[in-house]
């Protein structure tokens, strides 16, 4: 077995057990239901801000966008204003497409549809990477938004509307939320890809498996609570509203599974700012994407630009004067 995913898998399993037994056995509801979520939230916010400020503190000395299309040049040559933007408007569009549609990742897939030599449609994981990533991120977003119903009273109408949309497929009782199912499926797909797609296996680290296992565990506990075990929703809402209003309430009858779910979410919050998950913030700050390719039009300032030694023309002429005169090249000083 591979250490790379064994260690994170064990870690997630242990974390689950810690919370479950902590509550069921040791009665540490106050810790897992009240103290730790706050600790996690503080670390998350502080860590996130610290990281982003850290990036922002580093200079952007040069304007070096990756240009992926025709530049703006002569008026009759059609510029690709999105992939090679020369204005902030173009950059904004590029970033929106990048952030909401993962455009660069989609670029991968174009080639995948080509026929190969043997004239078979070539098989490729790439389109699935793009689809899987989109499905994962959007499902996650909807799941998070849906959870705000636990922290608001009354539940805002937009959240109710979202829930309605999410539960549009009427299946069984309680109704299925698409987002939860998609989230779990997409995460499992991304995990499978890491385990079975050769190139991704090779580059994957334990740090890539850990968040996947963590999210799978979170989704699984969530789904288990909603569909399979009887949890005391009223009790949970009392607790979460307590968290939202900074008042200590530990209701009776909420089982260990819920605390484990909450604990794993807290762990995800803590892990977030110190991991690759920070790509969520980083994507906004990536200088190869968020800058216009207009360095020739508008001067970009390097805050730490400093003077350097150069070999001046005078030194050059001093060095070569005789040869230059002999060759009939103009010189500034005749001797």
């Amino acid at each position: 077995m591979n250490q790379k995913y064994l260690i994170p898998l064990t870690a997630v399993f242990l974390l689950f057990l810690v919370a479950y037994t902590g509550v069921e056995g040791a009665g540490l509801q106050w810790f897992f239901g009240f103290v730790f979520p706050y600790v996690a939230l503080v670390i998350f916010v502080a860590g996130f801000v610290y990281k982003v400020l850290g990036w922002a503190a580093s200079a952007v000395p040069f304007r070096i966008p990756t240009t992926c299309g025709q530049q703006k040049s002569l008026p009759w040559i059609k510029q690709n204003a999105i992939d090679n933007p020369s204005t902030s408007m173009g950059v904004v569009v590029r970033m929106i497409l990048e952030i909401f549609l993962f455009r660069s990742l989609f670029r991968n897939t174009k080639a995948a549809f080509n026929k190969n030599v043997s004239n078979r449609l070539s098989y490729s994981w790439e389109i699935f990477l793009w689809l899987g990533a989109l499905a994962f991120h959007y499902a996650f977003l909807v799941v998070i938004l849906r959870h705000f119903r636990f922290f608001t009273s009354p539940v805002p109408s937009c959240l109710q509307f979202l829930e309605k949309l999410d539960g549009i497929v009427q299946l069984g009782l309680p109704g299925i939320f698409l987002s939860g199912v998609v989230l779990l499926a997409a995460t499992l797909f991304l995990l499978a890809r890491r385990i079975f797609d050769a190139k991704v296996t090779y580059i994957s680290q334990a740090a890539d498996y850990f968040p996947l296992f963590l999210i799978i565990a979170i989704a699984a506990t969530g789904i288990a609570m909603r569909y399979f075990t009887k949890v005391d929703i009223i009790g949970i809402k009392t607790l979460t509203m307590g968290l939202a209003t900074f008042s200590y309430v530990i209701p009776e009858g909420v089982g260990g599974l819920f605390y484990a779910h909450l604990f794993l979410v807290s762990i995800l919050f803590i892990y977030f700012p110190m991991s690759k998950l920070m790509h969520m913030g980083g994507i906004f700050l990536s200088p190869t994407r968020n800058m216009a390719n207009n360095t020739r039009m508008k001067r970009h300032i390097n805050p730490w630009n400093y003077d350097v030694d150069i070999h001046t023309y005078e030194q050059y002429e001093d060095h070569f004067r005789e040869k230059m005169i002999e060759a009939g090249l103009p010189v500034d000083k005749k001797e």
């Binding site: 790439e126 890809r193 190139k199 991704v200 580059i203 890539d208 690759k276």
Partner: peptide, 10 residues
């Protein structure tokens, strides 16, 4: 900091 090792570049 932000590489997620998705393998798109590999």
């Amino acid at each position: 900091d932000i590489c997620v090792r998705c393998g798109a570049c590999a």
